[in-house]
Amino acid sequence: MSTLIVIDQAPYGFWTGREALDMAFSLAAFDQPAAMLFTGAGVNWLRKGQRPDGVGQKSAEKNLSAAPLFGIEALIADEHACQQYGLTESTMLPGVELVSNIRDVLGDHKHVVFAG
């Protein structure tokens, strides 16, 4: 049973999502199983082609692309939220699993932690 890190806030506007990503990578660094769920405005983390130079931040997309490499078990996205924000498979990072009911995902994990 792994830890589920939930990001429900958009990237760049707040630091909380990035702190959650650090938490997920820290779990991975100590060999603790972890997965990430993106819901609400948090699904905007997953959009391809982010160029944050103009706002002086690191790319959420590029940071997140290291997740599989570090052993994060799954990147899961709320299908409804993706629709709301116009995200489709072709505009999203590869390898994201879509779910129609996040309640099932929350039930699958022993620990669930929200960002912020």
């Binding site: 760049y12 982010q50 160029r51 706002v55 997309e61 505009t91």
Partner: peptide
Amino acid sequence: LKADIDARALEAA
């Protein structure tokens, strides 16, 4: 604001 659109990859939208 252009910089915020670019950061979030929303040029098309």
